[in-house]
Design a protein around this nucleic acid. Structure first.
Lengths: 362, 362
DNA sequence: CTGAAAGCGCTTACAG
DNA sequence: CTGAAAGCGCTTACAG
């Protein structure tokens, strides 16, 4: 029976550096040096090195990340904290592609991920600062969600803890990777105008968030650039008043509606249902465009098979890029800008057509 | 200027317990006791307590979670290690519901999650034992995936590290939460027989895994119980030879096909395409049943809107239950069995109908 | 080239 | 009822 196997058989305690040291007959500090592959560790006697490496292997040594972190402040773990519901039953939710992108890039960079759970609940109860505080076990953290408690974050900034938002933020100095909604939204309006629409409405949720503000700004920009009247263009909804809104618009001669897609999906769902109940054909009777469905999880137009026209939010790529930026921040060397906006891919879809000619001409 | 505010102004260093101790004129250990609200802390002199609490408040003290965890030897983190591709682009993949269930229960139990990334890749390269070993940073770990390297796992067992498989395992003594495929599969056959089918085929992938073995066992059991001939019943496929298989079956008078759904989905995809190319109506010309789509991510029959008949795998519930079991293991008190099989919910679907009567009767 | 020591910030027995 | 000490597992100067 070797020393090492005796160690292992002795108990369920995890092997630590001092165990390796005893087995290999060196000091614990030497073990640390050798295992970490530091210059001074590399310089140790070849034979000693090998003895330590062998002992570590035999004991099944794995460094304790908590101890490592306390002593050195690095553990190759990135946090992911979300203020939305983390795993909604609805698979089409935008969280999945983000998580996929984050996981993909983290894996590529040799980082593990700590998923901070119950974030949505924690945010609900008075923005409990302790909830956000625990992200500090990781080297850095990614934040995601439309609504973010400000105070705990401010604290993180103060302490110089590295973090990145997924999604644009207004707070100055806060690093983020977001989607470039303004030009993408303006371009959607331009497409409708190009198809012949002049009477357009933009349906958004009451809910305030940078993503919503940017989309609205883009829609207004597009409308102004096309010389459209922007009065009454923007209509906030909670989704429940869609029938009334739609009825009013049809009476006014509105031929196209642009809707924002959020994580609740309330506006789009409400409008879709209203269009269905009104017995309207889309895009025959009404053109529809959606601002920001997640790639690969696009919805379908009411009553039909057509995918919505509009643009995609590059969720997956945002996740990937956020990981890259976070690692730069952790390393202390942000290469490019620390506030980035990624372009949104236009989606052709099948819900935009030329407006029906006025009845008198028929 | 108070002592505390001087401290705060001094630098950006986070205040720690010793700072509070100095300001309040007590020992650092006393600060710990009082701040944690332990019984002995509560017993301290009222006035002393208040001084400490005030100092902590004024300094803006926030406990360092890393140090806390090092000192208390528990980190309230559960690992999740998967041997499948973690986040396939195909959202319908079975990983998502599992992760959702795990996250849900972990949050409910106040545990965070460590996602070990790049697992699929690590498994590919010679079952690198170091890859699996790093799960020990967590208090315990969940494993998921059809194919699992045995050696690293054996090591975990030896060391008494708490872990749970999501999915049934053959290795004795290994705790798992799986799906009860045998009775569910037998019942699918029974339903086909009840609908009038006598000539049935079971299409499975070549790939070996407990889940596949169990489904086949169930299908054979169901067939025997119905008095069907089991010769030629089971047909392994890689998905590419589906046309030939299907053609042969039709010539033989087969009226129903049962397919297994795996994480690759090769068998089902192959058959679906073949049915489409043959111009068959489902279930008019051929009844179809699928063994094990994940809840909420059911596929659709070829060329139609009907959901597949068969059963659902309770992925989400498996994830939840695995977390519960793991926590019991960590606490050292497994309440119920450590090897559990959860029932699969039958799915009515729309791809089973009575077989078409033989032509001569038409 | 190698080993002994101090320290990261906290918790937890254990003496007074 | 209170305080001084040891220790969690590691890293990092700093002496030999």
């Amino acid at each position: 029976m070797t020393d090492a196997s005796r160690e292992r058989a002795a108990g369920r305690r995890r092997p630590r550096q001092s165990d390796i040291a005893r087995v290999a007959g060196v000091s614990q500090a030497a073990v640390s040096l050798i295992l970490r592959g530091t210059p001074s560790g590399m310089a140790l006697a070849r034979e000693t090195r090998q003895r330590v490496l062998d002992a570590a292997e035999e004991l099944g040594y794995v460094p304790d990340p908590v101890a490592t972190r306390l002593a050195s402040a690095r553990n190759a773990m990135l946090g992911l904290y979300t203020f939305s519901t983390t795993f909604p039953t609805d698979v089409a939710h935008s969280y999945y592609p983000v998580l996929a992108g984050v996981e993909e890039e983290a894996a590529a960079q040799g980082q593990d991920l700590i998923l901070f759970t119950g974030s949505a609940r924690a945010a609900a109860r008075a923005q409990d600062p302790a909830a956000v505080r625990r992200v500090r076990v990781a080297d850095g953290c990614l934040f995601f969600g439309r609504h973010v408690p400000e105070e705990p974050i401010r604290r993180l900034v103060e302490d110089g803890f590295p973090f990145v938002y997924i999604g644009r933020r207004d707070e100055p100095g806060v690093p983020y990777v977001g989607a470039d909604y303004v030009p993408a939204s303006a371009q959607v309006v331009a497409r409708l105008v190009a198809a012949g629409h002049r009477k357009i409405r933009y349906l958004r949720e009451h809910d305030q968030a940078p993503a919503s503000a940017d989309r609205e700004e883009g829609v207004l920009k597009g409308a102004r650039e096309a010389g459209l009247d922007t009065r009454g263009l923007v209509a906030p909804t909670d989704g429940a008043d869609a029938d009334a809104l739609l009825g009013g618009w049809l009476a006014e001669g509105v031929t196209a509606v642009v809707v924002e897609q959020t994580d609740t999906g309330a506006a789009l769902a409400g409008l879709g249902a209203a269009v269905g109940r009104a017995g309207l054909d889309c895009p025959g009777d009404l053109s529809l465009a959606v601002l920001g469905a997640a790639t690969g999880t696009r919805g379908r137009a009411p009553g039909g098979g057509a995918a919505f026209s509009g643009f995609d939010v590059p969720m997956r790529e945002m996740g990937r890029d956020a990981v890259r930026l976070l690692l730069e921040l952790i390393a202390g060397s942000p290469g490019a800008a620390t506030r980035r906006l990624l372009p949104c891919e236009p989606v052709e879809g099948g819900t935009i057509a030329a407006p029906r000619p006025p009845k008198k001409h028929t």
